[in-house]
Nucleic acid binder design. Sequence first.
DNA 1: GGCCTGATTGTTTAT
DNA 2: ATAAACAATCAGGCC
Length: 104
Amino acid sequence: MPKEAKTTRKAKAGGRRKKDPNAPKRSLSAYMFFANEQRETVRSENPGIAFGQVGKLLGERWKALSPKEKVPYEARAAQDKKRYEEEKAAYLANGGSADYDDDE
DNA sequence: GGCCTGATTGTTTAT
DNA sequence: ATAAACAATCAGGCC
C-alpha cells in the first residue's frame, strides 16, 4: 500500500504554534535553497507567472533533477542544519522547557 | 528499540 | 502579514 500521504502534516501552511519554548527553528530544506536560486530562473522564463504555478513548476523541476544535481542544494541544507545544531544546543543548554511564551 | 506525526523552513503573488 | 502548493527535515513523543 503506497502511502502517498506526505507525512500527514496539517492542511494549511500558515503560522503554526511553537510547541517548543525556545523553539530552535529547525533547519531549511534543500528545496528552500533550490527555490532561492531557481525562483529567479523560473520567473525569468515565465514572466507574469502566478505564485501557484511557480511553486508547482519549481517542485516538478526539483524532482526532475538528479540527486547529484540537488547536491549543491542539499549541501547548503546541511550547512543550515549545522547552524540549527547550535540553536538546538543552546535550546537544550538553556533548559529545554524553561521559557513560557506562546505567542509574542 | 523503532515509528510516526507534527511543527517548521522559504519561495511565489495578491489582498 | 497572510494564504496555499511545493518539497524536505528533523526532533520529540509514544508504546
